[in-house]
Write a protein that binds this DNA or RNA. Structure first.
Lengths: 229, 229
DNA sequence: CGCGAGCTTGACGTTGTTCAACTAGAGTGG
DNA sequence: CCACTCTAGTTGAACAACGTCAAGCTCGCG
C-alpha cells in the first residue's frame, strides 16, 4: 500500500454520503470492522443463498446483481460505484438474496453486517439514509420490471443504453465492456435478436457501435423508442 | 361507530407487529395523527405521481399495487391485510411511486407521513421493523420479476395461483374475486391466453374453477408447473 | 496461416397476441 | 314472465414477435 496513512472511513474520499451522518467516533467504530477487497472481471462477489457476513460498498468498478434461475439468470440491476450491495440481507435472515458478479476490475469495502446493523440502531439519521438507498433501488427495480414486461425488444435495448449512458457512465459516449451475451442477458433476449436490434439502431443513425465504444448520436430518438416500445 | 371506546393504536387488535416496538406514549402520538377510511371495490387508494400525505396500513381487504404505463398497467404485487403501502414514499420525495386500487371492500389506517417519519427517527427498533417490511416487499418483487420474465404462461398462472393460495388466502380453496381481466393483468398475458391456460389446468384436474371459488386439487403438480415453466 | 471466440445473418419454428364469432348468465324493462 | 341487452368468458384462425438452429464472417492470437 503506497499510502502512508492507514485508510479509514474518516478520511475516505469515496465514502457513501450516508456516512456523513456518522460521528467521528462512529466512523472509527465501523472503520475497524471493515476490510477492503478488489476483484477482477467476472469474479463472484456474493452468492445467492449463502450467508451474508457483510454489507458491500462498491468503490470502483461495475457489477451485475442477478437472480439465479435454472440455467438462465435474471439481472435485477447494474450497479455503478457508490452503491451498497447486500442491504436486503440486513433485515431478515442474513442470507444473500441475489448473486453479484463484476463486469470489470472492481474494489469494495466490506462492513461486518452486525456492526453495520448496530450503527443503524444507534444512529437514526444513518438508518434513514440507508433506508433511502434501499428505497432508491426498489423504485428502480419497479421501473426495470416495467421495461422487461411491457416493452418490446427495441424499447428494452433503448432503456439499457439509456441506463448505461445516463446512470452508469453519465455520458453519451462510453466503453462497451459488456459482450453481446452480457447485453442480451440484461435485456432478456437472445444474442441474435440483440444483434438485429443493434443493426437497426446503427442503420437509423441512432447509435454508433464501432469497436469498443458506444456513442449515442440521437438521444431524442432513443427516448422515443424507449417510450413507444 | 358501535364501539364505545374511541379506536386507537394502543388497544388495536389488528395493528402491525411493527407497532409492538412502540411505547404507549409513542402509540398515542401516532394514534392522534391517524385516520381510518374504508373503500369500496375498485376504488383508488393512491395515485402514482401524486403527493403522499400518509402511509397506509391495510387492515382488511385486498389491493393491487401497480405502475401505470400508457394504456396498460404493470401490477407490482397484491397485498393482503396487514401490510403497509406507501413506504417507498418515506425516503425521498413524498410522491407515490405507484397506484393502488382495491380488489374488494377494504379498510385502512392512514398515518400522517411526517409523524410516521418522526417515529422512525425517534425509535430505531421501530425503524428497523419498517425497514424489514420494505425489505420483504423488495425480495418478493425480485421473485415476481423472475416469474414474469423467465416463465411461460403456464408457469406464470401457476405462480399467481400459488400466491393467492399460500400468501393471500392461506388455503387451497379461496374465492375468485378477480375477473379474468384482472387475472390476465396480473399474469401479464391476454385474457384469451389465460382462458386457454385455465382450461388446460381444469382438464388436467389440477384446479377446479367453477363459479366463484377456486380449489387447488393437485398442489404438487402446480408446483411442478411453476418450476418447469 | 489456421484456429477459435464473438458476432452477424438468414430460414424456420414456437409462443402468445389479436381479431372475430359465439355462448352463458345477469340485469332491465315492458 | 319473457324478450332484450350487456358483460364476462370461451374458442378458433390468422398473425406477429421472438427464439432457435445453422452457416458464415471477422479479428485477434498462437
Amino acid at each position: 500500500m503506497a499510502n502512508l496513512l492507514k485508510p479509514d472511513c474518516i478520511n475516505c474520499l469515496c465514502k457513501s454520503s450516508c456516512f456523513h451522518e456518522l460521528s467521528d467516533e462512529e466512523l472509527e467504530f465501523i472503520s475497524k470492522r471493515r476490510v477492503e477487497v478488489t476483484y477482477k472481471n467476472k469474479e463472484t462477489i456474493c452468492k445467492q443463498g449463502a450467508f451474508a457476513p457483510h454489507i458491500m460498498y462498491l468503490k470502483e468498478g461495475l457489477v451485475k446483481v442477478y437472480l439465479e434461475h435454472q440455467d438462465r439468470n435474471l439481472i435485477l440491476c447494474l450497479e455503478p460505484p457508490g452503491t451498497f450491495l447486500g442491504l436486503e440481507s440486513l433485515a431478515q435472515d442474513k442470507i444473500f438474496h441475489y448473486s453479484c458478479v463484476t463486469y470489470k476490475h472492481s474494489s469494495f469495502c466490506l462492513f461486518e453486517i452486525d456492526a453495520f446493523k448496530e450503527l443503524m440502531e444507534r444512529n437514526a439519521k444513518f438508518a434513514t439514509r440507508i433506508y433511502g438507498e434501499l428505497n432508491e433501488r426498489i423504485v428502480r427495480v419497479y421501473d426495470r420490471m416495467l421495461t422487461l414486461t411491457q416493452k418490446q425488444v427495441h424499447g428494452r435495448v433503448a432503456d439499457i443504453l439509456r441506463c448505461l449512458s445516463e446512470r452508469i457512465y453519465k455520458s453519451n459516449e462510453f466503453p462497451m465492456t459488456l459482450t453481446r451475451k452480457d447485453f442480451s442477458e440484461i435485456t432478456v433476449m437472445s444474442v441474435e435478436t440483440l444483434s438485429r436490434v443493434f443493426k437497426e439502431l446503427k442503420d437509423e443513425g441512432i447509435v454508433e457501435l464501432e469497436g469498443k465504444t458506444v456513442r449515442i448520436l440521437d438521444v431524442d430518438k432513443l427516448h422515443q423508442i424507449s417510450r413507444t416500445s
